Simulated scan of single mutants.
Amino acid sequence: MVVSLPTNMDALPTICPPGGDSGLSNSHSELQKMLIDERLRCEHHKINYRTLKGEHTRLQDEYTKTQNELKHLLNEKQTNQEKMQLLFEELKGELLEKTKDLEEIKLQVLTPQNLELLRAQIQQELETPMRERFRSLDEEVEKYRAEYNKLRYEHTFLKSEFEHQKEEFARILEGEKIKYELEIARLEKDKEDLHNQLISVDPTRDSKRVEQLIREKGHLYQKIKNLDAEVAELRAEKENSGTQVENLQRIQVRQLAEMQATVRSLEAEKQSVKLQAERLEKELQSSNEQNTILTSKLHKAEREINTLTNKDYSQIMKFSNQLLNTTKCS
């Protein structure tokens, strides 16, 4: 602000009383001196005003800049807090997931007590049925072996009986054949004798004898027919007996084959049960090895979770310290 001073000397107030020219000149010089001093002070005030105004403007700019920086720091702080919260939630989720995995692994891992109980239970569940199965298989094998021996004995007995009956039928047939041939020879001889008698004897005198011989001849032919029928019946009986024996032999052979197949099947089933028991033993051993592997994985997962928890805690503390330092600086 510029202060204007009056230049007209008449306008100045009377400082000294009128008393002469010397007093007036002194007053005028003092007034000029005061005016010069006032102007100097005015210039000095102007310079101070401009300096203060520039300083005020600079301070105003610095204040605005500081406010902007403070807003930026506050926004950055809020962003960092949000990031830290998101990071904390993410790490918390990972920790919960790791904890859940750890619980699942703990559920999968068998303790030694549970393993012993499971082994005893599996052994009891498998051993008792296997023993019963082995016992029943042994009983069935013994039963079929006894039946096989019985059928074998019956087969041998029937075979010997068949051979005996075959020899008996052959002997009877041979006897009947010899008897039949002798009877035919006798009849042929009687026929020749009768023929000779008919030639040598008068037919008119021995007509009764001829009729008797004819009747005897008819009886002999009838007897021959009966013998032929008996021989045919014996042959049919022989063939029927042979067929029955062959059928019986086929039945016995088939039964023997079935018995042998049953015995082989039981032996194979017994071997299969034995292999199954060995396989279950191997599976139990594999389960024990898998349990050991799961236990080691469980310990490893616990170490990883502890490491991750310590790491996350250290990161959170470090980030919190950085955020506090930033807030203090602002």
Rank of each mutant, 00 (worst) to 15 (best):
2 V>Y: 06
4 S>G: 07
5 L>S: 05
7 T>G: 08
11 A>E: 14
12 L>V: 04
13 P>E: 00
13 P>A: 01
15 I>K: 00
18 P>K: 03
20 G>I: 00
22 S>V: 03
27 S>N: 03
27 S>V: 01
28 H>E: 00
30 E>N: 00
35 L>N: 03
36 I>F: 01
37 D>S: 01
38 E>H: 06
39 R>F: 01
40 L>W: 03
42 C>E: 10
47 I>L: 05
50 R>Y: 04
53 K>C: 04
60 Q>T: 02
64 T>A: 03
65 K>T: 02
65 K>M: 04
66 T>S: 06
66 T>G: 01
66 T>C: 04
69 E>F: 04
72 H>K: 11
74 L>M: 11
75 N>F: 06
76 E>C: 07
77 K>E: 10
80 N>F: 13
84 M>T: 10
85 Q>D: 06
85 Q>S: 10
86 L>Q: 12
86 L>P: 00
93 G>C: 10
93 G>R: 11
101 D>T: 07
102 L>R: 04
105 I>D: 09
106 K>S: 14
112 P>W: 03
112 P>Y: 03
112 P>F: 04
118 L>Y: 09
120 A>K: 14
123 Q>N: 15
127 E>P: 05
128 T>E: 13
129 P>N: 02
131 R>I: 15
132 E>T: 13
132 E>A: 12
144 Y>V: 15
147 E>V: 14
149 N>P: 13
154 E>H: 12
159 K>W: 13
161 E>V: 05
162 F>C: 13
167 E>S: 12
168 E>I: 15
171 R>C: 01
174 E>V: 03
176 E>K: 04
178 I>A: 12
179 K>E: 10
181 E>S: 08
183 E>Q: 10
186 R>V: 14
190 D>Q: 11
192 E>R: 03
192 E>A: 07
198 L>Q: 12
202 D>P: 03
203 P>D: 08
206 D>C: 06
209 R>M: 07
211 E>M: 10
218 G>F: 07
220 L>W: 09
221 Y>Q: 12
221 Y>M: 13
222 Q>T: 02
226 N>H: 01
231 V>Y: 02
234 L>C: 00
235 R>C: 00
235 R>Q: 04
236 A>D: 03
236 A>Q: 04
237 E>K: 11
239 E>M: 02
249 Q>D: 02
249 Q>Y: 03
250 R>V: 05
254 R>I: 06
260 Q>R: 15
261 A>C: 08
264 R>D: 09
264 R>W: 03
265 S>A: 13
269 E>W: 06
271 Q>C: 09
271 Q>A: 14
276 Q>S: 12
280 L>S: 07
283 E>F: 07
283 E>D: 12
284 L>P: 05
288 N>S: 13
288 N>C: 13
290 Q>N: 09
292 T>W: 11
297 K>H: 05
297 K>N: 07
298 L>V: 04
300 K>Y: 01
302 E>W: 01
303 R>H: 08
305 I>V: 07
307 T>S: 09
308 L>V: 09
309 T>D: 05
309 T>Q: 10
313 Y>H: 14
321 N>A: 10
322 Q>H: 04
322 Q>N: 05
324 L>M: 10
